[in-house]
Design a protein around this nucleic acid. Sequence first.
DNA 1: ATGTCGATACTTTATCGA
Length: 260
Amino acid sequence: MKIASWNVNSIRARLEPALAWVKSANPDVVCLQELKCQEEQFPREAFEALGYNCAVHGQKTYNGVAVLSKHPLEDVTPRLKGDDADEQSRYLEALISGPKGVVRVASIYAPNGNPFPGPKFDYKLAWLERLRAHAADLLRNEEPVVLMGDYNIIPQDKDAHNPKGWLKDALFQPESKDALRRIENLGYTDAFRALHPESGHYTFWDYFGSWERDNGIRIDHILLSPQAMDRLNACKIDRHVRGDSEKPSDHVPVWCDLDI
DNA sequence: ATGTCGATACTTTATCGA
């Protein structure tokens, strides 16, 4: 089962390239982030026409996540527990039945956290701690779990073309890296890093000319539970998507293939 | 400090978030 994630930076602004990528990549499951629209504005019919069931957790202007699947979606759960006052749409989970079994998939849009320091950075760390607590709970089911999306965290120096340029940024603070490592220490694996240990692989380039200089960072991650890791066949970054359209997202898709 | 996007609003330009 091919399971992909992509921060599209507005699904309405990105509909044409998104449909083109889905048609060519043909994933079984797609997690989208930064929809920047409410659920009723999501172009559901366009994806249904390609054979996808759509679960959407939208929000006006900001955030918004979705899970699209060619297989049945069950147990669809929006919101990350732990703070009922949190109105930001950054988490959507679903159970998906594949030909060989089930997999639990979450579409994640973690807070950016800039400017650092400040209340937005505090919110980022609190949100990531809520994600860690939930990730720990999920392990008790001993099922394949895929926690994928835009974590807004650069894990290591080798995940940035210019690490020194990020030293004052929320995405590269030690507390941010620690928050990701704490989730991994529960038993989750960064699937891309496990299969590709070398530097130079990025998922985000800003719109300020970074693509032309390959000044990228790797911040979109696929975290796999042990039961999912056992079934991992491949994990890739669809870098070409940045150059495939005239109005690309600042992120490109990442995906894994699981024997499920 | 700056660059560029996308969405929004008491638009047609400024603001915010990234």
